[in-house]
Design a protein around this nucleic acid. Structure first.
Lengths: 169, 169
DNA sequence: GGGGGATTGTTCGTATACTAACAAGAACAG
DNA sequence: CTGTTCTTGTTAGTATACGAACAATCCCCC
């Protein structure tokens, strides 16, 4: 029954023809998303390379800078990372002296995170050029295309990891 | 100097205002692409879970099925994977009995890859439902939005990993 | 007020990614 | 031929992702 809705929804997936060979990898959204994401990571490295930081580590620092102090799990949710993943990211940022961990007196389970002076300084410098990553990534698109792309991306991805996001601007 | 073109290109990144705090993580394309990609991977797992296969392994099998036989590096390029990455993917697919490797008499460096009978059978069954992954991922978008999104994704990602793709359908 | 259930973090294991350093083979210039 | 260069594939090391199993807490309800 799902097939019905599917067939009706987008003719790109039409594959009732002669050979069922109508499946084209390069036309699958997941595949294209992976390529685009890899591309964006390249841009990140090109622009932020000097800081020797990864996109996820940057995301964690940026969010910590915004919020001042949060628990590890909370930060993970805000940056779309697993508890297991954020754990590793924070460990590396701590080892690097950018993040400080303390325990919450109210709740023994929490690890209250915050930026160190070095961390604040670093993220401030990084934020200064970080916007260029988005610019470069969106370069092949016109302004209108970029806006539409941006909105579509929010609809697809925001469902899972982000808190309801008011479309700023 | 780059800043000039950048500032002119999209006002979203305008951040000359009072506080330079105008940087919002959730508005960065790279971040949103990561979220969307994670979302698409979820969909893949939801739809293809029964086959116990990952998106990349599926991509490799699908391409092998299309081409019949290619070298490992070639397959990696076509599926947007590093030599190091495709190496591991093929190793796992071989261990599973889906892929067969032989050496090319003309060129001793190449590892000619091909599907085994089990591999062919598996990928055929998988292709039957794989289209649903894209459908589900694009569900939050209207047809028009999905088309625009698709085109934008191609422009952004295709530059790096895909051979010039004629959008035949 | 104590126990069951939910939350927070950690650890383990597997699968990507990508860099760097290498070994082999092929291509090609001279 | 021979040396240089390019391509292919491997291996080692680092950083994500994510499922699963766990210990420590916390919270809420009977």
């Amino acid at each position: 029954m799902a097939a019905v809705r599917i067939r009706g929804k987008r003719e790109r997936a039409a594959k009732r023809g002669p050979a069922a060979a109508a499946y084209v990898l390069e036309q699958q959204v997941g595949f294209l998303l992976r390529c685009a994401h890899q591309r964006a990571s390249e841009m990140f490295k090109a622009v932020m390379g000097d800081f020797g930081i990864t996109p996820r580590q940057f995301a964690a620092l940026a969010k910590l800078d915004d919020l001042g102090s949060v628990s590890q799990n909370q930060l993970g949710r805000l940056t779309a990372m697993d508890p297991a993943t954020i754990s590793g990211v924070i460990a590396r940022l701590s080892a690097r002296g950018y993040v400080r961990q303390s325990s919450d007196p109210r709740d023994g389970r929490l690890r209250a995170l915050g930026l160190t002076a070095a961390g604040e300084q670093a993220i401030t410098a990084m934020k200064g050029v970080a916007a260029e990553v988005s610019e470069r990534t969106l370069e092949p698109l016109s302004n209108a295309e970029a806006d539409a792309f941006f909105k579509a991306l929010c609809k697809i991805g925001a469902t899972s990891c982000l808190p309801p996001q008011s479309s700023r601007n």
